[in-house]
Design a binder for these strands. Structure first.
Ligand SMILES: [Zn+2]
Ligand SMILES: [Zn+2]
Ligand SMILES: [Zn+2]
Ligand SMILES: [Zn+2]
Lengths: 156, 156
DNA sequence: CTTGACCCTAAAGCAACTTCAGGGTGTTTA
DNA sequence: TAAACACCCTGAAGTTGCTTTAGGGTCAAG
């Protein structure tokens, strides 16, 4: 099948597919010699589905590469896989812990202003003028689990 | 004070400060004509503290710019501020909701394999071969609240 | 007078894509 | 048969919030 058809079947854009090939997540497709179009088979389809499944579970490309490697070594022990998933669960939990603290702090901050006052008198701005205390600063954990982009506060 | 001193007082790198100037978060510093070094005053210090406080609360530069603007308009209504914080709390909560779902799914996935088997028999890989169901796919919300970088699965 | 700490700029790198610029291919339809 | 339109190609730049690198001045101490 051609790239557009593969994209439709899996629910990604053709650009994403080409990008994955570039990244080494997907094997390079064979080309139709007549027009240089990429040609995909069932193996590509299944591999792409696997990759997308991992991505919706917020794994990095590196994590996925480890799993893809295991996937084509049927006789290897799956210990690596189990460990990787365990670690990744920790990544998610670490991020949730961060966000829980964040939420508490933001709600406390929000509580500093209830009415519409002048900014001069807004308790929120006054609190934001205070340095972050060191305890809080130390709480930030390492976790690659990011969010998607916010449309509302993006430039343009 | 010079850039290095400002950096030390606030707890950021000098590169970050120069970057913020470039981004329009910090006003350009006056330069010492003799050597072209940046020279900062109390106003810069306070503004930088404000910015860092907002960043530890995971606000985007755009969100911060709105607050900085309000901060220097003492007679304006603080309604904008209150709304921005409310929205930002939603960003955090939206991301937490996503991660809660993610955690559930990952734990379910992890449950597919308890022993160290061959990858051929690993229930995790088998489940990852299945397409993401559409319901789950639709659940992903817009939220800019990202995580920091994961050292473990990063290249090099 | 050289070492080391500090300052400067401009550009590239990171993650995972998306978007854009510029151009070929292939089928359909007026 | 030629224009329209959908689809394919490559390579580069943009996104966010920085960090890192390259390459080079400034300044005090020893
Ligand atoms: Zn992970
Ligand atoms: Zn207010
Ligand atoms: Zn926000
Ligand atoms: Zn297993």
């Amino acid at each position: 099948m051609k790239i557009g058809e593969l994209a439709k079947q899996v629910g990604v854009t053709v650009e994403t597919i080409r990008y994955y090939e570039n990244e080494g997540l997907l094997h390079a497709a064979l080309r139709n010699p007549a027009n240089n179009y990429r040609r995909y088979d069932q193996g590509h389809l299944e591999r792409l589905i696997f990759i997308r499944r991992c991505r919706t579970l917020a794994m990095t490309h590196n994590e996925i590469k480890v799993l893809l490697q295991a996937r084509i070594q049927p006789d290897d022990s799956c210990e690596t896989i189990n460990e990787l998933i365990d670690e990744h669960i920790h990544h998610v939990q670490a991020r949730m812990a961060e966000l829980t603290i964040l939420e508490t702090q933001l709600i406390e901050l929000r509580g500093q202003c209830h009415a519409a006052l002048t900014t001069r008198d807004c308790g929120i701005l006054r609190e934001l003028d205070q340095p972050t205390d060191e305890l809080t600063e130390a709480l930030v954990v390492q976790s690659h689990v990011a969010g998607s982009q916010c449309k509302t506060h993006q430039p343009k």
